[in-house]
Design a protein around this nucleic acid. Sequence first.
DNA 1: TAGTGGTCTAGACCACTTC
DNA 2: AAGTGGTCTAGACCACTAA
Lengths: 263, 263
Amino acid sequence: MAPKWRELADRIAARIRNGDYAPGERLPHIRELVEAGAGSKSTVHAAYKALEAEGLVTSSRGHGTVVRSLAPLKRLGIERYDKAKWRDGDQVAFIADRVASGRAYRRNEQTQTVGLVAAPPIVAAAYGVPSGTEVYARARLVKEGDRPTHTLTSYYLPEIVEGTRLIDPNPGPAGRGGGFRVLYDAGYEIDHMTEELFTRPAAANEVALLQLPSSEWVIELHRSTYTAEDLLVEFAIGVHAGSRFSWRYDFPVPDSTANKGRQ
Amino acid sequence: MAPKWRELADRIAARIRNGDYAPGERLPHIRELVEAGAGSKSTVHAAYKALEAEGLVTSSRGHGTVVRSLAPLKRLGIERYDKAKWRDGDQVAFIADRVASGRAYRRNEQTQTVGLVAAPPIVAAAYGVPSGTEVYARARLVKEGDRPTHTLTSYYLPEIVEGTRLIDPNPGPAGRGGGFRVLYDAGYEIDHMTEELFTRPAAANEVALLQLPSSEWVIELHRSTYTAEDLLVEFAIGVHAGSRFSWRYDFPVPDSTANKGRQ
DNA sequence: TAGTGGTCTAGACCACTTC
DNA sequence: AAGTGGTCTAGACCACTAA
């Protein structure tokens, strides 16, 4: 037999999915359910906490517990890296997205810090340098309006970016054309990429930074960007709120018995 | 100021990451910490529950709370679909994986059920048929040894698979060569795919089926497989334990201003 | 200031594992 | 039977929000 708090949570969850409680609507207050005989305050609270962990509601002190209105997933495809957006135009890719969708660009939607750091193990491995080698880290917090959606930290080898706008400590949102444009102007035209992604529980600082509902997971994305000569020019780590994005990839079915060059 | 249970959880988490508590080792029993003055039983329990939600420990009644030994992520690349594995050989792709990694194949590592069902909305949309149209669903639960790792449900249009081994109600693990081989023999050679993935909280039945630690999230994968003529011949939905897999994709940087045909 | 969710306690009891 | 984590209660108090 399931615990009392689980049964209560399931009953409420069913009513939410059924539409009895609409998105944005307040759930009954904890004390109301206690008086109605649903159990002690702790028990009802446990049920509400479970609903929050399942992404159905969000609670806030002094306010109440409301049904979460989950925005549809933002679908990310590789077209977001289209050369036309950063090479030919003069807009950072993410700004081009905003313009295309008719939303206004706001200056504070991307903040960043740039500096030399000791390469974390993963970064060192990607570049094939000893762990602890100094590399440039360019960290951004990307927002959609007021809500942060993900962090993105790019790592560069100093010999590649030294002297470019990329490591200007006081840039705008990466400046005209974005990071890929800067690399292009420096003689490194990007050609192909690898993305690797997985999910994990959010760390405590990420919960605060990304304003995540407690117990939400994140997607961590590792992006390697190469020139046509297979030179790695950027290694980036993104941390995305799990409930806000999906990723989409197209690829041919591999055939190791054929000679087609790059797969 | 952080709650007492949060501070306790953070102290223990730090000791785990520090190696004071090794993977597989038992944490102090709840009543021990209560006697040691860490707080009431509920408070200590809350701390342990938080550690469990963060993937650091697993608790079990009658046994204790042990530090979780997390296996490295299994990295999935598109080479798992290599034609050589299912067209030329006689092994299901996942068996070929096992052979390559030196593990024994066990008959019960994949179970499946096959039948006609009303197409769920997503499936109907993928095939461009009305929602509720009857399609074949082939559901597998894939295990690694005793532990289930993911479910995979393939949906097919009846006119494509009718009369093939794919819908044999009593097949082995998809039979010789797997599903792609059956389609190949039926005149549908697969050519390219699209994968879309996102994460979400596990549903209650998935927690049971995949033996997930409570509050773990899952990755849901939507795979569309096409012939060279862009005919969709399989739409599959996978549900993977979030902590066990990563996905990897390689792709060229798109250039919409060039004429290169398929991106 | 009133009302909300969140924390904490002390103790009783339950469900499960191990011996 | 003994010992583990899990549930539940009743009530006190805290932290935050809104009018």
